[in-house]
Design a protein around this nucleic acid. Structure first.
Lengths: 336, 336
DNA sequence: TTGAAAGCGCTAACAC
DNA sequence: GTGTTAGCGCTTTCAA
């Protein structure tokens, strides 16, 4: 298998020096129209493909932005990455994506791998990381952006929101409808730190109102699936049948809960109110529609992209951008 | 901002040559235990991070596998990429991911960008590409794997299935239940070529049985959303109320159709049968569960990974691996 | 406008 | 076991 042609090959074919080829590959280079044409023709003939690796080494700029998400298989994270990727791609930057599986140890490994590629910035989901991971990121001396969270001790920039505060909004909504016996369905590990934050927010919001927050259904390790949401609701209907409302850690589990109600002949919202998180498409299509929280994933991605693209002009101060989530009231909680 | 430390810096600090550092960074290198320890300590002190870019240039191996999908925001593609990424990551290969937006022109641009990174193989979704895209891939002289399809003129390896044939399975299922007035809901462009293939397969299957296939609802450009599925069903109920069954291009639109039936008081499957494609989680959770086709996305990803990892040992012949989809009968079509 | 030389950080090959 | 040399493909710098 012959090795792919290099600039040297193109130069020889075009009868010019490699430098002229290099200049001709760029837009602005000062090259005579004739030389440029000859180079273009030679490159086409040879099937020349520019080698970004070599250019990166010389320029000490890779054009990579490392991004970690808990999982690819989640519309919220996919939306964020999509928005980020589009905005960065327009400026010639490329996303280098990795999934942590909701596990800080795997995040640490992943970040280590990604840093070897010399990314120009790192975008992380969440604000919880191992000590070694924090250390690596600090030493990398590149912009770090934590998202989907408002960490107390951020590594750098932050684009996020308070997961706990969203539950205050939701509990407020439910109690305003006269519902007080409220359950929470989520994971029973702290692996999904944002989910755990929402559970904490739920507990705090209930405590603030003097309501008992002892209806907690833990469904194992994240991500909590639709099926697990359905199972949780089935358990709840048996074990705590006087429950009036259920807040689920995500719309996916909330939809599962909704389905379990449908199967059990429990009317939503009359017999049971159901709320989710995430404003996934399903929330606006299912019957009844789901009351949920929209965290504006693509706004988070777009804001992160803006921070990255502005890194040269306004380098120093760490930004803390809050993207305020919105309560979306659907048919799964009672009308006023 | 100080430049990150290089092997030279580590070598100086450890009192050895760069070559010894290089050897100490690998597992197998022949380095004395003492030197290895000194290098390790120096590297830790300096916060040294191995520069994969430079090593790649020297080794002429990047460790990148380029992967294109229509969109990240799709559980089927996310599953495929996840399986691929896990299998490749275990061997030190990294996925370089890009989204085409269901657009061959954008795929062409994307492939051009990705090839500049010198990937060691390319995994594409689908078998339709622009002429220039095919040309670039042919000239790149690296393994190319097309997935989710069985192209007539593949570029290289293939891991997929016949989208058209899945619709034969589905039409067979519906007619065996005595349903003959069957509609198809999908896009009305050819951008989603796999969706278009399924529509062709539907038309052929109907023709084969002498059934009229004139109940086609086109909902615009892909991806067809849950909402569009709901809108399509709403239209169908008005415009062709005697329709007995609807096949939707994906489970997402099928779920939308299901919701529209629920809203309209149409009983599924008694008054209307609904079928989807993809075996998304929602299909097994919604009420009733959806009859669908499981294309085994992670099997596709795993098979592609195997082809890539075996590229050295069994280089030449192009493989054509069929991952046979399975009909999953749910409650949205009538029991026998 | 064009070219020659030097070097980005790393490693294969070959000394010793 | 360790060091020296050369060079991967590109671009900056400087000279013509």
């Amino acid at each position: 298998m012959p090795r792919p042609p290099t600039m040297k090959d193109v130069a020889r074919a075009a009868g010019v020096s490699v430098m002229t080829v290099s200049r001709a590959m760029k837009d602005g280079g000062s090259v005579s129209a004739e030389a440029r044409a000859r180079v273009g023709a030679a490159a086409r003939d040879l099937g020349y493909v520019f080698d970004a690796t070599a250019a990166n080494l010389r320029l000490q700029r890779t054009g990579f932005i490392a991004v970690t998400v808990p999982t690819l298989n989640n519309a919220n994270f996919a939306d964020m990455v999509g928005a980020l990727s589009r905005a960065l791609g327009a400026e010639g930057l490329q996303v280098l994506l990795g999934a942590t599986g909701y596990d800080v140890a795997q995040e640490e490994r992943l970040v280590g791998q990604l840093l070897r590629r010399r990314p120009e910035a790192v975008v992380l989901t969440g604000g919880s990381h191992t000590a070694h991971c924090r250390d690596m990121l600090a030493k990398a001396a590149i912009p770090v952006i934590e998202t989907w969270d408002l960490p107390d001790e951020p590594l750098g920039h932050v684009v996020g929101f308070s997961n706990a505060a969203t539950m205050e909004m939701m509990v407020q909504h439910l109690t305003s409808r006269g519902l007080h016996r409220i359950a929470f369905v989520g994971g029973d590990t702290n692996q999904d730190t944002r989910g755990a934050d929402r559970k904490r927010g739920f507990l705090a919001a209930m405590a603030r109102r003097g309501l008992a927050a002892d209806r907690l259904i833990g469904m194992g390790a994240p991500p909590i699936s639709m099926r697990q949401g359905a199972d949780a609701m089935a358990r709840l209907l048996v074990e705590m049948p006087d429950t009036q409302a259920v807040i689920c850690v995500s719309d996916l589990s909330a939809f599962g809960a909704l389905s379990a109600c449908a199967r059990a002949g429990v009317r939503v919202p009359d017999d049971m109110a159901v709320a989710g998180f995430g404003a996934y498409e399903i929330a606006s299509v299912c019957v009844p529609t789901l009351t949920t929280i929209d965290p504006f994933p693509s706004a988070i991605g777009a804001a992160a992209a803006r921070l990255i693209l502005a890194r040269d002009t306004m380098d120093q101060p760490f930004q803390r951008i809050e993207v305020t989530p919105r309560l979306v009231i659907g048919g799964s909680t009672p009308a006023r």
